[in-house]
Design a protein around this nucleic acid. Structure first.
Length: 858
DNA sequence: ATTACTGCCC
C-alpha cells in the first residue's frame, strides 16, 4: 500500500502495466475491494487485469467470485489466455461445476489452447475431481508435453478418490518414462501407501524423499507423520514430527490424531498443550481428536472446557465436533449434556442420531434409546447398520421380544440382514430375550458368522442352561479356524461354571493361558467364578491372587465363592482386605458378605453390616439384602425378628422372602410358620412344585402323616410332581447323570455293590440312617432302602469306583442335599479317606475327615 | 456400531 501511495503521488497509475501489477498484488493479498476498484476504474481493462483478479480470487478460495468475474469478462468480449483458463477451470473444480467446466473446455478448444500444458493439466484435474476418470485419462494422454506436474495432477486425484493402486501404477509409469518425481509426487505416494496400508513401500518412499533432498518439504513431512501413525508405529510418527522445524496445523493434527489412534490419550493432550504454547490455534480436527482423548481417559472436566472453547471459537455447529461432544459426554455418563448438544445441533444427520441413541443405550436408558430409534425412523432420516446394532443392544437389555422381532423384520426388509454387526446384535438380542430358537435360526442362516457371532450364540446357550451346547459350539468354532478371544473364553468359563464341569473348565483355562489372555480382567474374573462353582475354591484363590488389577467383580466373585463354600470367616477376611486396598463394595458385594455371614452362622456380624450399610458404604439395603437378612434370622430360629423385618421393610415381601421363611420353618419344624409361608407362596408362585414338597416335609418331620397324605393328594390333583433329584459327576471330560434308584448306567452293578459294601462299614462306624424327612409313607426298612439309592449317593459311589484312590470327588445336585446323604458323606469321607465336594442348589459342602465345611448350618 | 465377569430364597 505504501508503494501504491507512491505510485499515486507520481501519477503513474495510468500506466496499464503498473495498474495490472497493483491489481495482481491486491488480489493475491485478498484485498479484493482495491483490486476490483482498479479494474473498474481502468478506462480499458484488458485481459491481464481480469486474469490477475480471477487468479487472485481462485488462489484465495473465492471460487464463486472468480466465476462471476469470468462471466463479466466474457460479456466484455475479452478472450481468455493460457493463464485465465487454468484459473477458471480451477474455480469450476472447486465448485464441482462440471457443466460450466465443459463450456470453458469448449471455449479453450475453440481458442486453440487445447494442447497447452497448463490448460491440459487443469482439465485433467477438473474431470478427475468430478469423478470422470475416463475423460480425465484421455485428456492426459492428449497433452503433448507432459511434465511432472501433469503426472502429479492425475495421480493425486486418484489418491484423493481412494484409487491407491492406480496411483502407484501411474507413479511407476512416470518414473520409467524418465521423469524424476518431485516432492508433490512423493507426498501423494506416501498418502497412497497409507491408503494401501503398505508400510514397507512407505518406508521406501521415505528413503527416496531423503535421497532426492525433499525431506524438509512440509507437505511430505505431514504425510509421513500421518502414514507412520496409521500403519507404522506411533514412535516413528513422533520422530518425523519432531524433525519438523515449524509444524503447521496439519502437522499438529496428524501427530495428535495418531496418538489418539494408538490410545495414547495423555500424549495426545500433551501435544495439544504444546501446540497452544507454540501459538498455533486448534481447529475442528484438533478439537475432534482432543475430545476423543478426553473420552479415552475419562476427563469429564477437560471435556467440558473443550466444549466451552468450541463455543468461544464459534465452531460449535460442526457435525463432526458435535458428534465428538455427544460421545464424550455419553462415555462420561453425562447423558443430559449429550442430549443437550444433540438438541442444539442445527442439522442433525444420521451419524448424530446414532451417537445420541448410543449415548442413551450406553447409560442404561434403553427405553429412550428405542423411542429415539422410532423417532428417527419416522422423521424420514431412516437408519443404517449402526443404528440397528445400537438399538438392538438396548432391546437386548430390555428383553423386548416383540420389538426385537420388528427390528429383525426391518433389517431383512432394508437389506442389512447380511451386515455382520446387525447379525451379531440380532443373535445377542434374541439370546437375551430367551428366544433361543430365533437366535439359532439367525446364527445358522448367516453365512459369514464371525467370532462375535459365535460368542453371542455361546453366551445364549450358556445363559439358558445349555452348557453342553455352548461347549460344542466352541469346538465347531475352532474347527472353522476362528481364533478365540477373552470374550468367548469368559462366556465358556461361565458355561463350565454352570455345569460344574471342572475338567472342561480347566481346559478352557489352558486356552486362556495359550492365547495370552491371562491378564484380561474378564477372563480372570470368569476363572475365579468357574473354579469356585466347580468346587475348587483353592484354584479360585490362586487365579484371584494372579489377577493384576482386581476390580469389584473379582473381589465379589472371590468373596461370594468363599461364602458358598462355607468359609464365612475367610470370606469376611477377604472383604476387609478389599476395603483396605481401597476398592468400594457395591450392592452385589454386600449380598455376598451377608451370604458369608449366613453360611457361617454369623448372625450378629450380619446385623452389623445390614444396619450400617448406609453409613459404611453409602447405599440403602435393597430388597435382596432384606431377603438375605430375613433368611439369616429365620435359619437362626429368630422368627419374631424375621417377621418384624418382613413387616417393616420398604418392599412387599415376594416369593424369595416367603421361600426363605418356609425353609427356616422346615429347619425348625415350625408348622404354623410353614403353613403361612406356603399359603403366600402358593398365591405368589403357583407354578412351582417345591412349596408343596417343603410343607409336606415339615408335616413329615413332626409325624403329621394325615397332612402329608393331604399334600400328596393335592399335588396329584394339581398334576404336580416333585422335581426329581438329579446328580451329576464329571469323570474324564464326560458328565454322568444320576437320578434316584437309577440303574441305567453301564457300571450300575458295580455302583450298587459299592453302596452295599459302604453300608456295612458305615453301620460299624456308627451311622444311623435318618428317615425323618422322607415323604414316603412306608415302613422304616423300605425308607432306608430308598435313602440308599438317592441320586447323590449313586454319583458318589460311581466317583469312588471310576476315579483313582485319593482323588477328590466332585458332585453337583439340582436340589438341596438330603440330610441323610449329608450325614452319610461325612462318614464316607472318613472311611475311604476321600474329599467329597458336593455342590447343591445353593452352597458347597466339603466333606473331609468326617466333617463338612458347612458346619451343619444349612 | 456388535460379543464377556460377581449375589439371595424355594
Amino acid at each position: 500500500m505504501q508503494i501504491h501511495a507512491h505510485i499515486l503521488k507520481f501519477g503513474s497509475i495510468k500506466d496499464p502495466k503498473t495498474r495490472n501489477f497493483l491489481i495482481n498484488l491486491y488480489a493475491k493479498c485478498k484485498v479484493f475491494g482495491y483490486a476490483r476498484k482498479l479494474v473498474d476504474e481502468s478506462p480499458e481493462p484488458d485481459l491481464v487485469s481480469w486474469s490477475a483478479l480471477i487468479s487472485g480470487y481462485v488462489q484465495n478460495g473465492f471460487a464463486k467470485e472468480a466465476i462471476l468475474a469470468f462471466h463479466e469478462m466474457h460479456l466484455l468480449d475479452l478472450k481468455c489466455n493460457e493463464f485465465t483458463f487454468p484459473s477458471v477451470l480451477k474455480a469450476c473444480t472447486f465448485t464441482k461445476d462440471l457443466e460450466l467446466g465443459r463450456q470453458v473446455h469448449g471455449i479453450a478448444v475453440v481458442n486453440g489452447f487445447e494442447s497447452d500444458e497448463y490448460v491440459g493439466n487443469s482439465l485433467v484435474v477438473l474431470y478427475a475431481k468430478c469423478g470422470r476418470f475416463d475423460d480425465s485419462r484421455r485428456l492426459f494422454e492428449d497433452i503433448p508435453q507432459r511434465s511432472v506436474v501433469s503426472w502429479n495432477a492425475l495421480f493425486s486425484c486418484y489418491v484423493q478418490s481412494d484409487y491407491f493402486g492406480e496411483a502407484v501404477e501411474l507413479f511407476h509409469e512416470m518414473v520409467s518414462s524418465g521423469i524424476k518425481p518431485n516432492e508433490f509426487s512423493l507426498s501423494s505416494m506416501i498418502n497412497a501407501c497409507t491408503g494401501l496400508e503398505d508400510s514397507g513401500q512407505g518406508r521406501k518412499i521415505h528413503g527416496f524423499l531423503i535421497k532426492l533432498g525433499y525431506d524438509s518439504d512440509p507437505f511430505s513431512k505431514n504425510a509421513l507423520v500421518d502414514m507412520y501413525a496409521k500403519i507404522g508405529n506411533l514412535k516413528g510418527a513422533i520422530a518425523v514430527f519432531e524433525e519438523i522445524v515449524k509444524p503447521d496445523i496439519v502437522s499438529w493434527n496428524a501427530v495428535i490424531a495418531g496418538c489418539v489412534l494408538h490410545h495414547n490419550h495423555d500424549c495426545a493432550l500433551n501435544f495439544v498443550g504444546q501446540m497452544r504454547l507454540s501459538g498455533t490455534h486448534p481447529n475442528l480436527f484438533t478439537m475432534s481428536s482432543a475430545l476423543k482423548a478426553c473420552t479415552g481417559i475419562g476427563l469429564k472436566e477437560l471435556g467440558r472446557q473443550l466444549h466451552c472453547n468450541l463455543i468461544k471459537l464459534n465452531i460449535g455447529s460442526d457435525s463432526f465436533v458435535n458428534v465428538g461432544l455427544i460421545d464424550m459426554y455419553s462415555k462420561s455418563g453425562l447423558t443430559n449434556e449429550a442430549r443437550t448438544v444433540f438438541n442444539l445441533m442445527p442439522d442433525k444427520d444420521l451419524i448424530a442420531w446414532n451417537a445420541v441413541i448410543s449415548a442413551h443405550s450406553q447409560n442404561g436408558e434403553d427405553v429412550e434409546a428405542v423411542s429415539l430409534f422410532h423417532l428417527v425412523h419416522k422423521e424420514g432420516l431412516g437408519f443404517n447398520q449402526t443404528t440397528l446394532s445400537t438399538v438392538l443392544k438396548s432391546i437386548a437389555s430390555l428383553q423386548a421380544s416383540n420389538v426385537c422381532k420388528q427390528v429383525h423384520a426391518l433389517s431383512v426388509k432394508s437389506g442389512f440382514e447380511s451386515d455382520c454387526y446387525v447379525v451379531n446384535s440380532l443373535i445377542d438380542a434374541y439370546g437375551k430375550c430367551t428366544l433361543l430358537e430365533d437366535a439359532t435360526r439367525v446364527f445358522r442362516e448367516c453365512l459369514i458368522v464371525d467370532l462375535v457371532g459365535y460368542t453371542s450364540m455361546i453366551t445364549a446357550y450358556s445363559q439358558s442352561g445349555q452348557g453342553e451346547e455352548a461347549l460344542k459350539l466352541y469346538l465347531e468354532m475352532l474347527d472353522r479356524a476362528i481364533e478365540p478371544d477373552p470374550y468367548v473364553c469368559s462366556s465358556l468359563l461361565n458355561a463350565c461354571a454352570n455345569l460344574s464341569a471342572y475338567e472342561q473348565g480347566k481346559q478352557v483355562h489352558v486356552h486362556v493361558l495359550k492365547h495370552g489372555f491371562t491378564y484380561d480382567i474378564f477372563a480372570g474374573n470368569s476363572l475365579v467364578n468357574m473354579y469356585a462353582k466347580c468346587g475348587s475354591i483353592d484354584d479360585a484363590g490362586r487365579v484371584f491372587s494372579n489377577i493384576p488389577e482386581r476390580g469389584i467383580v473379582s473381589w465379589s466373585a472371590m468373596i461370594g465363592g468363599l461364602a458358598q463354600h462355607g468359609h464365612g470367616k475367610e470370606s469376611l477376611r477377604v472383604f476387609n482386605q478389599m476395603l483396605k486396598s481401597g476398592v468400594s463394595p457395591n450392592q452385589i458385594t454386600l449380598v455376598s458378605v451377608l451370604c458369608a455371614c449366613n453360611h457361617a452362622g454369623l448372625v450378629t456380624e450380619a446385623q452389623k453390616y445390614f444396619r450400617s450399610m448406609k453409613e459404611l458404604f453409602g447405599f440403602e439395603p435393597m430388597q435382596e439384602h432384606y431377603t438375605c437378612m430375613i433368611d439369616i434370622l429365620g435359619r437362626a430360629g429368630r422368627f419374631e425378628e424375621a417377621m418384624e423385618l418382613v413387616n417393616t421393610m420398604p418392599f412387599q415381601a415376594d416369593g424369595s422372602v416367603w421361600g426363605a421363611l418356609l425353609g427356616a420353618a422346615r429347619i425348625h419344624k415350625n408348622v404354623e410358620l410353614g403353613q403361612r409361608a406356603a399359603a403366600k407362596l402358593l398365591t405368589l408362585e403357583p407354578e412351582k412344585s417345591g412349596t408343596h414338597v417343603l410343607l409336606a416335609n415339615i408335616y413329615a418331620s413332626v409325624a403329621m402323616w394325615d397332612d402329608v397324605a393331604k399334600m400328596r393328594k393335592l399335588m396329584k390333583d394339581c398334576n404336580m410332581k416333585k422335581e426329581p433329584g438329579i446328580s451329576w459327576i464329571e469323570v474324564k471330560d464326560k458328565i454322568y447323570t444320576f437320578i434316584a434308584g437309577d440303574r441305567s448306567h453301564v457300571r450300575s452293578q458295580e455302583i450298587y455293590a459299592k453302596l452295599d459294601e459302604l453300608s456295612e462299614r458305615l453301620s460299624k462306624a456308627g451311622y444311623v440312617p435318618n428317615v425323618e424327612f422322607d415323604l414316603h409313607d412306608v415302613d422304616r426298612g423300605e425308607k432306608e432302602k430308598l435313602l440308599y439309592h438317592h441320586s447323590e449317593k449313586l454319583a458318589v459311589a460311581f466317583g469312588l469306583i471310576a476315579t483313582p484312590p485319593g482323588a477328590p470327588i466332585r458332585v453337583k445336585k439340582n436340589l438341596r442335599v438330603c440330610i441323610d446323604c449329608h450325614t452319610a458323606f461325612k462318614f464316607i469321607s472318613e472311611i475311604v479317606s476321600r474329599e467329597i465336594i458336593l455342590r447343591d442348589i445353593n452352597r458347597y459342602h466339603h466333606f473331609k475327615d468326617g466333617s463338612c465345611s458347612c458346619g451343619d448350618y444349612w
